[in-house]
Amino acid sequence: MKRLVPLTITFIVGFVLIFSVFLPPAEGLDQTFTLYFDIIAVFAFFLGGGNLMRVHINKLRRQKKDWGFSVVTIAGFLFMLAAGLFKIGNPGDIATAVDTQGSLFKTVFDYVINPLQSTMYSLLAFFVASASYRAFRAKNREATLLLIAAFVILLGRTPFGMMVTGWIPDSFSIFQIPNLAIWIMNSPNLAGQRAIIIGIGLGVISMSLRLILGVERSYLGDDNA
């Protein structure tokens, strides 16, 4: 019974949504189901927030390793929740947007969250360098081609590309590095991407059919599918 209910729901909803694409009277159903999902997801926020608090309060109570971080997490969570919920410092009334300029929420967003997120994202620059250093080795013919393509793209994304190859006459402008970079992106890269995307599309169809037909059940923890 525990398996039958979700499998039946998946079967019915899956088929209804597939056919709704082709049947105008059922066309709005996908929107309706998306809204249902959103409503469920909103309630799940409470679940997530609750879990976060439970885990960190437990850690704090038992004075587990690195419990100091839990204090920061709980304090940050409650502070931001209060700033948003009670619209602290919001110059407008209750109807104005939570992130109106001047509100505590917007201030924290601009001066804490914004720089923190940018910092995390900027780690990419460091990791791209270290990964490139390790991965771009001319070990064989394919790897060498990849290496050359990487060089063209890297140079093509800077003004240096044009500075180095700007002298090439316009009739051979394809060999100017920025144009060569665009060609690599637009032709070989695009062909590969499209092939991968077609494969993914078919993979999604196959996976969805397995789920809808109940052939695939391991996401329910059922090993004997």
Partner: peptide, 12 residues
């Protein structure tokens, strides 16, 4: 994601 949390717990 909270929903992933509940689903993953069930799976494991």
């Amino acid at each position: 994601r909270s929903l992933v949390m509940t689903a993953a717990r069930e799976t494991i």
